[in-house]
Amino acid sequence: MKKLTVMNVAQQEFWKMPHTFIDAIYETFPDWKIQVITSLESEIEHIKDAHAIISSPFSASLVRGNKNLEWVHLLSAQVPLSWQKLQNQYMVTNSSATRDAVAEHALYLALKGLRGEKSYQDKSWNQEHFRISKVASECRLGIVGFGNIGERISTITNPIFQEIRFLTNRSFSPDGTIHYNYEQMKDFFEGLDVMILATNHSVRSAEIFHQKDFFEYLPPDIIMVNIARGEIFEEKDLFDFFHRHPNAFYLTDVTYPEPYPKDGLLYQLPNGYISPHIGGKFNTLWSKLEKELRVLLKDRK
């Protein structure tokens, strides 16, 4: 009998799999031996001999030496880098359930940047808590990454912004938008007001965002929103840019590491804002993940 290991190891209450989700797994895989683990460290042997795994993202190193593994389903919008490198060996699927929520959080951060809210210190009537705002209908928005989330962002921002442009390795972009490839990065940034990073963290994206030219192309008053991954940048380079350009603004839902430490460099930026990776956290998430699991994995029985 094949073994399916379900990793229910989250520490935070919201991210622990509800019984309805686990029940859905049992119903979808009636002929499998299902092992639900709640501690990664003490139950790691159930990862080492599983034929399949359902889990929030975890390092692919942990399955090394597993000669049984056929497929992995990750409850996340992105396939982590360590798994991308192994996609020739195993079938790895991920979830699109958080698409709308993450796209809306990106819009929230973009509007927060445009409205000029600085770090909010106390409950007081103080206009100094806000910079002079910009109006979205007079601004150009650039979206880096044309996946599920990037596309959804363009749909919800299209009515609001003057122009939407994509930086993408695809040769097209949604109707009503302009696209640039990575060789045209300088043109992409020309006259850009707001930028949303919605790209996968991959070997390719690391090459692009770690190159020195990248920060030289950025407009000095750019509003940059990051809903991709914290490690997409070298943090020191990011800090240096926003430190030198006080009229620019960095708003991110992702950091490296997570949780972000209290003495993290980005907290020193008066023009920085960090939300604690909550973009994909919404009230109906688990029921969406359950529906998606039944559809995506029905052929894996």
Binding site: L40, E41, I44, S59, S61, L62, R64
Partner: peptide, 9 residues
């Protein structure tokens, strides 16, 4: 312990 495994590989 999990970081050790990552580091090892």
């Amino acid at each position: 312990s999990l970081g050790r495994i990552n580091l090892f590989y």
